[in-house]
């Protein structure tokens, strides 16, 4: 299915308030057809409210929501060609897995034979063959999650909305499901709109993502763009770990007071006598803290000019004994100027 040029989902200056709280505040978004689009943000940032407005559970106070170019702002959920995977799965406890998955087709009065065939297809897609007659209460968390997914996808929605679908799963299962969701999305070719507060998840799965803060969209871009070129201090600090530098310290380091961010992994931890190249910045400090994380080690370095920087170094040639010995020592930090990311103010 191609709808060339027309976005699958479009939000035009959409706002929604709950009492005095402006949950969503003038959001503009354009989600392309077939895209895996993530709305990332801390709790209360408006991302879930946006999703619920696309689904039709909430009405916007102002603005317009379009699905494939059609204004659906006033339509109830059952008249929109989107389906939702809920955070708590919202499976029907009195129905079997098969009946849960077939629910949408049953409502549309699809003949029983056809229903059974499609349910079997879905069970295969989410790898739950043989569990058709179980009740949701007899399934594990991961299995329930798959049922919720199958129940939504069977309706062939043009857009699938997922509200923190992996939030209740443990880390291992979550990572496995991330890959699986992505694979399923590529197979069925449906537009996925995915809500999460987990920046790692967002970076792993998305084609593009929007970073939400306080009801507004701070930045939209591919994971690489958002990670490497955060547009605002909030994005820099929320997506990955970042050192934010501004004012006098920025002046001392770069010669300009403009705020910038620098990723911990871009900074090289060197001995005091190390020399910097022309395109590099060098600054001295004392290692205040060392956190050994296996794959890499995180150092907290107090600069002589008065701020702390976080530095991450791969444990390529170092053991935990070596890195711990660095604590309290004077070091020189060196990084390339080009890795400084200039920031505009959040508001």
């Amino acid at each position: 299915m191609a709808y060339a040029g027309i976005p699958a989902v479009e939000l035009r200056s959409v706002s929604r308030a709950f009492g005095d709280v402006r949950a969503v505040d003038g959001v503009n978004l354009s989600i392309l057809d077939g895209e895996f689009f993530t709305m990332l943000g801390p709790s209360g940032s408006g991302k879930t409210t946006c999703l619920r407005m696309i689904a039709g559970f909430e009405r916007p106070d102002a603005g317009m929501i379009l699905l494939h170019g059609q204004d659906v702002s006033a339509l109830p959920p059952y008249e929109r060609s989107v389906n939702t995977v809920f955070q708590d799965y919202a499976l029907f406890p009195h129905m079997t897995v098969g009946d849960n998955i077939a629910y949408g087709l049953m409502i549309k009065k699809v003949p029983v034979a056809e229903r059974q065939r499609r349910v079997a297809e879905m069970l295969e897609l989410v790898r739950l063959q043989g569990l058709e007659r179980r009740k949701p209460s007899q399934l594990s968390g991961g299995q329930r999650q798959r049922v919720a997914l199958a129940r939504a996808i069977i309706n062939n929605p043009r857009v699938l909305l997922l509200d923190e679908p992996l939030g209740a799963l443990d880390l291992k299962l979550r990572q496995q499901m991330q890959l699986e969701l992505k694979a399923i999305q590529q197979r069925v070719g449906i537009t996925f709109v995915y809500v999460t507060h987990d920046q790692e998840e967002a970076l792993t799965m998305s084609d593009r993502l929007a970073v939400f803060n306080l009801g507004k969209v701070e930045q939209v871009g591919t994971p690489a763009e958002v990670y490497e070129h955060p547009a605002t201090p909030f994005v820099a600090s929320f997506v990955g770990i970042s050192n934010l530098v501004s004012g006098e310290v920025a002046q001392a380091l770069t010669g300009s007071p403009a705020a910038f961010s620098i990723r911990p992994e871009k900074i090289h931890l060197a001995a005091l006598e190390a020399c910097a190249e022309l395109d590099e910045i060098a600054v001295d400090g004392v290692v205040r803290d060392v956190i050994y994380l296996g794959l890499y080690t995180r150092y907290l370095v107090a600069l002589d000019i008065g701020v702390d920087l976080v530095v991450a170094q791969q444990n390529l040639h170092t053991s935990s004994m070596d890195v711990m010995a660095v604590r309290g020592q004077r070091v020189r930090l060196i990084w390339k100027r080009e890795h400084n990311q200039e920031l505009s103010a959040s508001d």
Binding site: F57, P76, P77, N83, F86, D88, A90, F92, Y103, I107
Partner: peptide
Amino acid sequence: GNSQVEASMDLGANGWQTFRYV
């Protein structure tokens, strides 16, 4: 809870169908 009702509506059921089946 309300999410089952929302799920039913999301899957295309109107108010009466949601009452009857869920």
